[in-house]
């Protein structure tokens, strides 16, 4: 479980958020909701130790994450707002890169199956720059399943997605939490998921 204790963050003396206490237990989906500029992305970056806060701690499985950050990183998948895929490489090149990077054991058939469900299989040898924004986003989300980590942290996962993909994504979230996974995402769109917890950032 992820425990966030009294977390505050200042950017040059400007307060972004203050005294946040939440705990994410296994099988929980949490949405960080807030308007633009309310500090959602900053909050995620502080949790990931990309930005370092002066007050407050983050604990993962009872251990302070800043003590052994790579141990924590090894348990999470982070999907940022950017497109992590390289525009000049093909879809399969990108997938192979992520696969090798996270030393995932997933088989090629499973990958083809995944691409099939997201309707991406026909692009397998196409460079990313010829894909549409929504297709690139779907490719990014494939990393969730490729890497098989326990904690998923996502920034604006619903951007550019069509209704069908949103449904698939929600189903994936529910499946993951049923397997004791944890999902934390920041978005201004509230998906129709039954057991959704909301952290309001306004």
């Amino acid at each position: 479980m992820l425990l966030i204790n009294n977390l505050s963050f200042f950017r040059d003396t400007k307060l972004i958020f203050e005294n946040i206490n939440i705990s994410l237990v296994n099988g929980q989906i949490t949405q960080i909701r807030g308007k633009n500029g309310s500090g959602k992305t900053t909050f995620l970056k502080v949790i990931l130790n990309i930005l370092i806060s002066k007050s407050g701690e983050v604990f993962w499985e009872g251990k302070n994450i800043s003590k052994n950050i790579f141990n924590f990183y090894n348990q999470i998948t982070f999907i940022s707002d950017h497109n992590t895929s390289s525009r000049k490489l093909t879809v399969i090149d990108n997938i192979n890169f992520w696969k090798g990077l996270s030393s995932s054991k997933i088989s090629d058939e499973d990958i083809f199956l995944l691409l099939e469900t997201f309707n991406l299989k026909k692009y397998i040898n196409t460079e990313i720059m010829y894909l549409s924004a929504g297709e690139i986003k779907k490719l990014e989300l494939l990393r969730l399943i490729l890497e098989k980590r326990k904690l998923w942290i996502l920034d604006e996962p619903y951007n550019h997605l069509d209704n069908l993909s949103i449904e698939i994504l929600n189903q994936t979230f529910v499946d993951h939490t049923n397997n004791n996974g944890i999902v934390l995402f920041a978005s201004h769109y509230t998906p129709p998921i039954a057991k959704l917890d909301i952290l309001d950032f306004n």
Partner: peptide, 12 residues
């Protein structure tokens, strides 16, 4: 710009 550096860092 596309955040690959962060991802590579997170993978150890």
């Amino acid at each position: 710009n596309n955040g690959v550096l962060i991802i590579m860092h997170m993978r150890g």
